[in-house]
Amino acid sequence: MQDHCHKLFLTAAAAALACALLPRAASCAAAKEAEVKAAYIYNFTQFVEWEVPAASAAGHFDICVLGSDPVAGPLSALPEAEVRGKKLRVRLLGDSEEELRSCRILFLGKAKRGRARGLANALRGAGVLTVSDLPGFARGAGVIGFAAENNKIRIEINLRAAREAGLKISSRLLEVSRLVQDRP
């Protein structure tokens, strides 16, 4: 039995190793993570109140994505919906920073790593909910940051940034979030 077990173990280990070594190009886990983030962003439309009117985009509630990011895919697949009487619209801005103030929610993609803090600061008071998964985004002047922890997506909220942006965050959203402060 011992010898048989030994052979079995080697075969099984070889099977696992073979599975492990097969080279694969897979982007699915990222897509899944992006789907969770997109679902959160969709939820934000219901749990945040905008006290400052949008700069333009009358008739539309714009969710914008600045810079390329996997979240753009699932956001673009959001179903047609109305948010606060306006038609939900997802705009992929690419690298253009010209119409940021017309966005109600602005997701800053990973490509904007170096510009995120500056942009978030520039948009304070404009009624734009800035969101990003860049590390420490909410501590660096952004309103909401995503942090991946143990295969889950956590929300970090900077209440001061939200207040300065003219946003009221519902207690329900605060309950599932971690509150953070600006890093000095």
Binding site: A31, A38, A39, A77, P79, R154
Partner: peptide, 23 residues
Amino acid sequence: AEPAAAGLRELLSYDLGKLADVE
């Protein structure tokens, strides 16, 4: 390479608490 929308549709039906606990 086609993105699957089924997962997203499911996630959209979640409330915040459930979304935070999706794992």
